[in-house]
């Protein structure tokens, strides 16, 4: 197991810092690694990279469609591009370019979407993209990764250098507790962060820490929740989901995303398609996600609370899922 003793309060770094550190190492090891940015290098932690590797960096200006198009072209030229901006615009604005120029040709381009989700805070709904997992996981060939902490983002960045197809790496703006040591990161392989037999919480990104805290609360009520970090949304780890369903028949999903089309939907697709086949018992799912509405400006924590992306919401969802399961 890769869980380290998490400190939930004293936060010093987040996934974007892990990406910034990882891309530096990757570029040093591999001269084919290039990073592209659209006037947000500080925000996506590429400023030091831009300074240290000027010949492996491309600044395209405020032009996210061009960003992905040029990345595709660099890949045609044999390079390994990482194209970064805010997720609201990358893939939010350049989805067609991603779909056709990158995914259709199965080019080894990674698009890096920073500042995803409500934790953007003050910038408000226009910048708080909550639809990007849905947008990306429907694209053929595209791998979708949402790291939960800096070490995992670092590991994912290095893993993506060796990955042969296109990928989307989703990052948050906020710092997160250090939950993993980054070792044992494997694309497509879910991570059990905490064992438990009464139910399973599947979480991704900033919600993983909250899932672990929810599991602590549930334990006080004598409920043993397994917590699984689904850092890879696509290809999804079918085995892990099937195993969880067969273990307890009670699943909670938690994501910083719209309730439609994200992690919860992906898990539900696996469950419904395997019920009566690989899954041998009735299984219920409760989803913790944003309930089909836009976010708003405010301090990140306050916004998360208002839109019910909290530890308490996960606990409540777990209790409800257990009640529902008992009805079957």
């Amino acid at each position: 197991m890769t869980l380290i003793q998490p400190n939930f309060t004293n936060l010093t770094q987040g996934p974007r810092d892990g990406f910034g550190a990882g891309i530096m190492v990757a570029a040093k090891q591999n001269p084919r690694v290039v990073a592209l940015c659209s006037d947000l290098d500080e925000s996506v932690r590429l400023a030091t990279f831009a300074h240290n590797f000027p010949n492996q960096f491309v600044e395209v200006g405020v032009a996210e469609q061009n960003l992905v198009g040029v990345a595709a072209g660099l890949a045609l030229g044999g390079l390994k591009p990482f194209a970064a901006s805010y997720a609201a615009f990358n893939p939010g604005r350049n989805w067609d370019q991603l779909r056709v120029s990158v995914c259709y040709s199965n080019l080894p381009v990674t698009i890096v979407g920073g500042h995803a989700g409500l934790t953007v805070g003050g910038d408000g709904a226009s910048h708080q993209i909550l639809e990007d997992i849905a947008l990306t996981r429907v694209l053929p060939n595209l791998t979708v990764i949402v790291p939960c902490d800096a070490a995992q983002a670092y590991a994912a960045t290095l893993a993506l250098v060796d990955h042969s197809g296109p990928a989307y790496l989703r990052l948050s703006r906020v710092d997160t507790p250090d939950l993993t040591d980054g070792l044992n990161f494997k694309i497509g392989q879910a991570q059990i962060l905490r064992p438990g037999t009464d139910l399973t919480i599947f979480a991704t990104g900033v919600m993983v820490a909250k899932a672990l805290q929810a599991a602590q609360t549930l334990q006080i009520h004598n409920l043993q929740a397994q917590v699984i970090n689904l850092h890879t949304i696509k290809p999804i780890d079918v085995t892990a989901i099937v195993r969880a369903a067969n273990q307890s028949g009670v699943i909670v999903t938690a994501e910083e995303h719209q309730i439609y089309g994200g992690l919860g939907s992906a898990v539900a697709e696996v469950v419904t398609q395997n019920l009566g086949h690989q899954i041998t018992q009735p299984t219920v799912i409760e989803m913790v996600a944003v309930n089909d509405c836009f976010g708003e400006s405010g301090p990140a924590d306050a916004v998360m609370e208002k839109y019910h992306l909290t530890t308490e919401a996960i606990v409540a969802a777990a209790e409800k899922a257990l009640r529902r399961r008992a009805q079957l």
Binding site: D123, G124, A125, H127, E296, S297, G298, V303, K306
Partner: peptide
């Protein structure tokens, strides 16, 4: 400005008419 529940969002938003009773 930029606080929770405020009509003055970090980036301006427009609605043609009142969406619901909340101030935002």
């Amino acid at each position: 400005f930029r606080q929770l529940d405020s009509p003055l969002q970090g980036h301006p938003h427009f609605f043609p008419k009142i969406q619901d009773e909340t101030e935002i």
